[in-house]
Design a protein around this nucleic acid. Structure first.
Length: 543
DNA sequence: GTGCGAGTAC
């Protein structure tokens, strides 16, 4: 934003400081009209610097009067309106200056409840977490209304601080402030983020009792919440019951289907939406593209692209990336490339998608060329880039590049990422350097089930059955419960080595840990033991 | 005030 000639907290206006520039001084606005004009400006200020500029000038002129009466007439509510203008224009810098002016004017201004609320909301909307918290905490408890609570809880939930958002919600209710339709959507977002289905359902019940369950914002959030919790039918139930729908309601339902792998229904809903005359937004198209990518539905995805173009949607970094993802998934790498080259802005995700697309298509040179171009734009590789480079090295057995990637990972603290570590384990194991692979595994401070499984099957796949078993025991000593897939790996290693009794012994242990054998386990054992004359033992164990 | 894109394995 261009530098604003902000006169606040100065008492003089820019005109007053250079009187020769303003031969005809602007008349002082009638005190009563300042507030009304600001309110109207804030409505139209949407990111228009001009409106913000006018608002500041107006206050400056009103403030610039030497008479005490004029100063009093510029009351706290004027500053609140000014903050509203800053919110509308999205200017953190301008709002900070208003804050400074308030402090300078004294406690009558800075401790005003209305202004304090606006200040907290202003900082929250600008995403200034610490400032918003401070402004909120500065409000006396009795002045914290639903509006202020909603602003700060929403800020936490948007920042991904879900637990904090829920604590805030509990505190809000504890303080006797009833929840309204503004705070409920952000609380539902926090519940979905934490996977707290029961809590979210309780919020739904609360919304009913509070009479806000029919609000379109609340209902759209409920659709989203139920979808994220895997309750597609509940999501659809809310969606069908909506007295009115916005495009966000449709998009939430679309995503509910997609997140739950009900892609056909998502595609159908997209068409239904068009039939209803609802104009798709970027989010709708992104959803359709994501469904098409997963389904490898070439026609639908292409249509998504066409809809985006015909609707005049700006192909921003997210929409463009979704297109690249779709085209790469269906093997139309050239189409992905065309989108990629046309994009004005690309971020790390865009680059990673294009790089992975080239690698998967076997266009290794282009992939590395894209890596180089990416570094030239001052972006660094992240764990996704590296995982995809390492994967390509495993495929092509390029130990040299793989080792370089390992070095890059270590230097940039990316070697603790699971996908990178799994890739490296594979890389070293594929060239027989099992001890290198083990070193990568040992260096991981956080080992999840997948990592254990990878290391165990690395041993198992190479017939190192006792090493695999040792690791399986080790895993349990560390308090992890091996999945059926881990047990399968070890059992199959013993079977392949002809160590049938050991295989059966491992199977016994598996049953003791109450891990349910899956189809693979059974077929492994049945075909492995069928020729050994060990049916009886097997039957005894199995039954 | 509600909705969005990436990794072989979860």
């Amino acid at each position: 934003m261009a530098s604003l000639p902000l006169p606040i907290p100065a008492i003089t206006s820019p005109h007053a400081s250079k009187p020769h520039d303003a031969p005809v001084p602007a008349p002082r606005p009638a005190a009563s009209s300042v507030h009304a004009v600001l309110a109207s400006l804030s409505q139209h200020a949407h990111a228009h610097d001009d409106a913000l500029h006018d608002a500041f000038a107006l206050v400056a002129r009103a403030e610039g009067q030497p008479s005490p009466a004029a100063a009093v007439s510029v009351g706290p509510e004027v500053y609140a309106s000014l903050l509203q203008c800053c919110v509308a224009a999205g200017s953190l810098r301008a709002g900070r200056q208003v804050h400074a002016a308030l402090v300078k004017r004294g406690p009558y201004y800075s401790r005003n409840a209305y202004v304090g609320t606006k200040l907290a909301v202003f900082y929250a909307r600008c995403g200034a977490l610490a400032d918003a918290e401070r402004a909120f905490e500065a409000l006396p408890e009795r002045d914290r209304n639903a509006f202020a609570w909603a602003a700060v809880i929403g800020l936490w939930s948007r920042a991904g601080l879900h637990a904090r958002a829920l604590d805030g919600f509990a505190a809000m209710l504890g303080a006797g402030v009833p929840a309204d339709n503004f705070v409920v959507p952000t609380v539902l977002k926090a519940c979905a983020g934490l996977g707290l289905f029961r809590a979210g359902r309780a919020v739904h019940g609360y919304a009913w009792k509070a009479g806000i369950a029919e609000c379109v914002y609340v209902m759209s959030s409920l659709v989203d919440f139920y979808g994220k919790c895997g309750q597609v039918e509940d999501a659809r139930g809310v969606f069908d019951a909506m007295p009115e729908r916005t495009v966000v309601s449709w998009n939430s339902m679309l995503m509910a289907y997609i997140h739950n792998s009900r892609i056909d229904e998502a595609v159908e809903l997209f068409y239904e939406m068009r039939v209803e005359g609802v104009l798709p937004t970027r989010v709708s198209v992104v959803s359709l593209l994501s469904a098409s990518a997963e389904l490898e539905a070439v026609d639908e995805g292409r249509q998504g692209h066409a809809v985006a173009v015909s609707s005049g949607l700006e192909i921003d970094v997210i929409l463009g990336s979704s297109m690249i993802n779709f085209y790469c998934k269906v093997g139309l790498v050239e189409a992905a490339e065309a989108v990629f080259e046309q994009m004005e802005e690309r971020d790390i995700v865009t680059w990673n998608l294009m790089i992975a697309g080239y690698f998967q298509d076997g266009q290794v040179d282009k992939a590395f060329d894209a890596c180089r171009r990416m570094l030239e734009t001052n972006l660094k590789f992240d764990c996704v880039t590296l995982a995809s480079i390492i994967m390509a090295c495993v495929k092509s057995c390029s130990m040299m590049v793989g080792t370089a990637a390992h070095g890059y990972a270590v230097r940039n603290d990316l070697d603790s990422d699971r996908a990178v570590a799994c890739g490296l384990i594979d890389l070293y194991a594929s060239t027989g350097r099992i001890e290198h692979a083990r070193r990568v595994f040992n260096a991981m401070s956080q080992r999840d089930l997948v990592l254990w499984k990878v290391m165990i099957s690395t041993y198992a796949d190479r017939g190192m059955s006792s090493e695999a078993l040792k690791l399986l025991d080790h895993m349990q000593l560390e308090g992890m419960s091996p999945t059926a897939a881990c047990w399968d790996s070890v059992i199959s290693a013993f079977l392949r080595n002809g160590q049938f009794e050991d295989a059966l012994e491992v199977f016994k242990q598996m049953l003791l840990t109450r891990t349910r054998p899956n189809l693979r386990t059974w077929s492994l054992l049945i075909s492995g033991l069928s020729k050994t004359g060990m049916h009886q033992e097997f039957t005894k164990v199995a039954c």
